[in-house]
Amino acid sequence: MTYSLRIADLPESERPRERLLTVGAKNLLTAELLAILLGTGQGPGKLSAVGLGQYILQTLGQHQRDPLDVLRSVSPQELMDINGVGPAKATAILAAIELGKRAFQLRPAPRALIDSPQVAADALSHDLMWQNQERFAVLLLDNKNCLIGTQVITIGTATETLAHPRDIFREVIRQGATKLIIAHNHPSGNLEPSHADLILTEQLLKSAQLLDLPILDHLILGNGNFASLRQVSDLWTRYPQGE
């Protein structure tokens, strides 16, 4: 695709809107999705909307950054500092980003049954999924695995958070929960559990046995996805929770 051409000069089969209707949004390049939001082009060299979208991504991706990662928390001024992006284009992009976040952060209804890692991740997404700092949170459940509430226990740096068993179980007992799911996020999007994650999980499972407050899972969230430590480790076999 020639990025200096106007969208109107492109064959219909190459125009972003027409391609979205034909092949679906998930099959469009990121620059094409941005072009639909931008509506028109310009910027350096009078770029097309697709070209401007590509230029925005290149600008945000400077210094070996992931442009989509930057977009998740970009400010209006950062966008408007890019040649060719004014208030109208910046607000269209920011509105789309926020809408996408809210779609991923749909919370289950109060007292909803938490019967799978996916449902648990959905309940925790608002607090954990798109945060720039690591957070440790607890999903509080009753004896039928129905949702009582969620609670962020600690907030750390961009790469590390700390949670003490005392703080976690104090909140569980205070709210009258009888079961829990623990979770934290990896802002990098890498869902591989660290050695520290596994050690902490082991400590918490041991404490849960003593307190008779079963931990059903430990989830790691990030970048729109999640991992279940119960599914990828043998910790629950080694430390049964008497569910």
Rank of each mutant, 00 (worst) to 15 (best):
M1S: 11
T2S: 10
T2P: 11
L5P: 04
R6H: 11
I7S: 11
E14M: 15
R19D: 09
K26C: 05
T30L: 12
A31C: 09
A35M: 08
I36S: 05
L37S: 11
L47F: 03
S48L: 08
A49C: 11
L52V: 05
G53D: 02
Y55D: 00
T59E: 12
L60P: 08
G61Y: 02
Q62W: 00
L68Y: 00
S75Q: 08
P76I: 04
Q77A: 12
Q77M: 08
E78S: 13
E78R: 13
D81W: 00
I82R: 01
V85C: 02
P87F: 01
A90K: 01
T91S: 10
L94W: 05
A95T: 14
R102Y: 01
A109S: 12
D115F: 06
P117Y: 00
P117W: 02
P117D: 03
Q118T: 12
A120Q: 08
M129R: 06
M129I: 10
M129C: 09
E134G: 05
V138K: 00
D142E: 06
I148W: 01
I148A: 02
G149D: 10
T150Q: 06
T157K: 06
I168V: 15
R170L: 12
V172T: 14
V172A: 14
G176S: 07
I182T: 15
A183G: 13
N185C: 11
N185V: 09
H186Y: 10
P187R: 04
G189K: 03
G189N: 05
N190G: 06
E192N: 13
H195M: 11
H195Y: 09
A196D: 14
L200F: 03
L205R: 05
L205M: 07
K206L: 12
K206T: 09
S207K: 12
L216T: 01
D217E: 03
H218C: 14
I220T: 02
G222C: 04
D234E: 10
L235S: 10
W236R: 08
P240G: 07
E243C: 07
